[in-house]
Nucleic acid binder design. Sequence first.
RNA 1: UCCCGGGUAGCGCAGCGGUAGCGCAGCUCGCUGUUAACGAGUUGGUCGUCGGUUCGAAUCCGACCCCGGGAG
Length: 400
Amino acid sequence: MFKILKKSKISNARLGIIKTPHGELKTPIFMPDATRGVIKHLGAQDLNNLGLECLVANTLHLFLRPGTKLIKRAGGLHDFMDWQKPILTDSGGYQVFSLIHKNKNNGRIIDLGAIFKSPLNGAEIKMTPELSIKIQFALGADIMVCFDDCPPNGYSDKMLSASVERTIKWAKRCKREYDKQAKSLKNNKKPLLFAVIQGGDNLELRKRCSEELIKIGFDGFGFGARHVDESGNFLAEALKYTADKIPENKLRFGLGIGLPEDIVKSIKLGYDMFDCVIPTREGRHGKLFLFNCHAGAKRSGAIASQDSIGRSDQSVGAPSGMTNNFYETINITNAKFAKDFSPINRFSKLPEPRRYSKAYLNYLFKIKEPLALRLASLNNLEFYFNMISEIGELIKKDKF
RNA sequence: UCCCGGGUAGCGCAGCGGUAGCGCAGCUCGCUGUUAACGAGUUGGUCGUCGGUUCGAAUCCGACCCCGGGAG
């Protein structure tokens, strides 16, 4: 169940609340990816300390290993990973793109679903809409996503159209399976079910896909496939068009979005939920996200005025507050940090980024010490968390 | 003092007659519903010094200077 608490007077942004079997979620929300049932290098206690409210786990990955039988035996994914707040499970639809579309050797798409070659042992796995939903129930997900066909950039309209039709057909089957599984559950134990709108940058196809999916009836709708073009430019038109098609009382999920500025833009278009590997993966690769201005009105103003032009520049060393960008990224592995004994982030609410120096983190990366990956992940997740929190405050005041 | 190794990019090394490469480090870029603690690109060197042989020397010869190891 979703309820809008407040709509911004200056954009389509809104504040809302989602009721799930594992508690309530405030939107807008950023949900980090715990694809395999873990935010790499962090434990549930870390996630609680960060204040995170919801994670995204992956149906296909968890099905392959450790398998639903084992997770059921553990009492469900929440107990297995000791995370008692909501979990959203992605359906495996993205893997149709990331595995099959990127490399035909990894599987193929059939009418019934998709055949994946397991990256673990090469065994063929037939993923169907029904199986995806069954797995998501077995995992104990709070929010489920329909199995969809996520196409790559550059698909012809004909191919995109086929992927849209397949996505609609599969969504119907997901819904049917969901109804079957959820029938016996009490209302407050029923998970939410989302569908994913495909169609690439073709607005006609986005229209068709959204209208058909809305007819079927879901709790929320995702913007599927790439939200940026090959050069990384935000596909504002398709994002806006699709958001406007989704009924106001339904949740809007920007799957895989993204860079901080892309999230800012998407919230202004009316999207409520986001997940992305950027904070964790780029952290592991040595990139740290840091606010340019450290607190107060100046930073809020910078976030609110981040507009829809271009990507973030690498404004390392740029004078704070002088650019429209509200943040900067640094590559902590650069040698210039080897002697920088300032804290990773002296404004962090966590002790680690506040106490450990950049020089130490640089050194930890150099010796390939896993603690480096943990510290970078903590820093970046806190950045994303703070960014979303501040946006929420701004919406409350009609400043966003 | 003698004998044996060795001195080539910041470091570790390859090349052993046709005017220099590799790894690491450095630097730059990428990563967007995670097959990713990953991937791509790239800057550095009158090859210890001086002379000789040769059309041509990092490569062959001589002397010297350094650094190891051994003998005395």
